[in-house]
């Protein structure tokens, strides 16, 4: 029997209304459309997919930045999607969200010290002196010198801003951190440093990560399991090595085929996927991937395939998989 999941998402959906020129609702973009998964404590679950697939919406919905249109989130045994105000705020320290762009998520007019102190003032009862100690500890743990406390965000490099963002989150000792594109916009060498830091912090704080990224090679390195999203749905979910070695969904296969493989065959010689994702407000009938799928058959236009288990830990949403 597996350990009870720390987070359970059950048929989450988030619809954004589409309005015409008169402000009348004419349809909806289903950014999340029945997404279900579980995260075990201490696990790193990767969420991958291309822009517009709903992976950021998913991250934001989990921490309550986006309200849900439907579904339920169970976090540490407590259903949190219907909580509001004070009750929801009590959950926040344990369930934190790390913003995509650390440069824009730090207040440009606040020093690092003030940015780090704010979550402690809001969420804890610590005295000023205790807060100072906590802040100094945090700074050391994310590998920044104490002298940086009085700097402003623009005086820091991208990698350092990322560290401050992390320190701010860790201040509250979270249990689960949603990392939204944590390496986008970083240089290769900085990325390596930041990834290593994520690994160390996971150990030190016993964290569980939800790792949202479009970079498959980073996900492969960091995650225990990976969920692949396409147009608001999870199309495949499996342990990392299984997914990369034997992907079952044609979309996952194309996604993996598109990653440059240094020293291997060139993608420019082998890549065959044509076309682009359809307009999310006008989805095709049946399977959402069928318009680009190299293996699509007539049945794909009629049946919308549900995520079905192929093996105990491997599921794919494709009629032809398995």
């Amino acid at each position: 029997m597996r350990e009870a999941p720390i987070l359970k998402a059950d048929r989450l959906s988030r619809h954004f209304p589409v309005r015409n020129a008169f402000g009348i609702r004419t349809g909806a973009v289903r950014a999340l459309d029945g997404v279900s998964f579980e995260v075990a404590p201490g696990e790193t679950l990767g969420i991958v997919g291309e822009s517009g697939c709903g992976k950021s919406t998913l991250g934001k919905a989990l921490v309550g930045i986006h309200p849900l249109s439907g579904g339920a989130i169970v976090f540490e045994g407590e259903e949190i999607s219907r909580l509001s105000g004070r009750e929801r705020r009590a959950v926040a320290p344990r369930l934190q969200y790390c913003h995509q762009d650390p440069g824009n998520s730090l207040d440009p007019r606040w020093t690092v010290r003030r940015s780090l102190e704010e979550p402690l003032i809001v969420h804890t009862e610590l005295e000023a002196a205790e807060r100072v100690i906590r802040i100094r500890d945090l700074l050391r743990q994310v590998g920044l010198p104490q002298t940086h406390l009085d700097l402003y965000p623009h005086e820091l490099s991208g990698g350092q801003q990322r560290r401050v963002g992390l320190a701010r989150i860790l201040a509250l000792h979270p249990r689960l951190v949603v990392l939204d594109e944590p390496t986008s916009g970083l240089d290769m060498s900085v990325q390596a440093t930041v990834l290593k830091l994520f690994g160390e912090l996971r150990q030190a704080f016993a964290l569980t990560y939800l790792f949202i990224s479009h970079d498959l090679s980073v996900v492969r390195m960091m995650c225990d399991r990976v969920a692949v999203m396409y147009l608001g749905r999870i199309v495949e979910i499996a342990p990392t090595e299984t997914l990369f070695r034997a992907p079952q969904h044609p979309y996952t296969q194309s996604l993996l085929a598109a990653i440059p493989d240094i020293g291997g065959r060139r993608v420019t010689d082998t890549f065959t996927l044509e076309g682009e994702p359809p307009d999310p407000a006008r989805l095709p009938s049946g399977c959402r991937f069928r318009t680009r799928c190299p293996r699509a058959v007539a049945a794909c236009a009629e049946t919308d395939p549900a995520l079905r288990p192929l093996r105990p830990d491997h599921a794919a949403a494709c009629l032809l998989a398995g």
């Binding site: 290769m188 990325q191 390596a192 440093t193 290593k196 090679s217 492969r220 390195m221 240094i262």
Partner: peptide, 12 residues
């Protein structure tokens, strides 16, 4: 420093 399966990326 590139992430590759089976090894930790090395920082510069």
């Amino acid at each position: 420093s590139l992430p590759k399966p089976g090894r930790e990326p090395r920082e510069i």
